[in-house]
């Protein structure tokens, strides 16, 4: 059965089983591989996207659940001021080692700053708790989010 899903502002047709996770529709049907596979069961956050602006695990989000919703992926993160501010902070802080989890980290961090532009250190840790970084770049993830929050999005 065909589903229509709005991804990064475009309606995309997906002729897949409705229970197919969004992650695999993105990666293998639409060739959008920026969203990463880490665990398949919502434990690591590597596959995080935004659904109606909220961070969601695409590995556990069936395609059939997305009717009428707006999905944003890492490929379109730079279209938002918060996303641009965080991408810049990520580079300024040289956050990453391997970088594989960072799309998910950035999507979660963007959802955080969009709803709470000045999070406390505790709020940053709480919001990012679902995103594993196996290289453990956590000190820099904290610093980059704090830096982006401090600078704001005015010039982003």
């Amino acid at each position: 059965m065909a589903y229509t899903v709005n991804i990064n502002g475009q309606d995309r047709e997906l002729d897949v089983p409705g229970e197919m996770p969004l992650l695999w529709a993105l990666r293998n049907e639409l060739d959008m591989v920026g969203t990463k596979f880490g665990c398949g069961v919502g434990l690591c956050g590597a596959c995080t996207v935004h659904v109606d602006g909220t961070a969601a695990r695409s590995c556990s989000t069936p395609v059939s659940s997305l009717a009428g919703k707006k999905v944003r992926t890492i490929e379109a993160l730079a279209e938002t001021p918060t996303g641009r501010a965080l991408q810049a902070a990520w580079l300024d802080e040289d956050v990453m080692q391997c970088g594989y989890c960072q799309a998910g980290q950035l999507m979660t961090a963007t959802a955080l700053l969009d709803r709470n532009p000045s999070p406390s250190a505790q709020q940053i840790d709480t919001a990012m708790a679902g995103n594993i970084c196996r290289c453990a770049c956590y000190t820099r993830i904290r610093d980059a989010i704090a830096m982006a929050a401090e600078k704001g999005t005015a010039n982003a």
Partner: peptide
């Protein structure tokens, strides 16, 4: 000198760069 990762700008944009991104 502290030099940022050479691939990092591509990674924050979600560009295909890892093994599993091969298409």
């Amino acid at each position: 000198k502290a030099i940022g990762g050479i691939d990092s700008p591509r990674i924050v944009r979600g560009e295909p760069i890892f093994g599993v991104d091969t298409q």
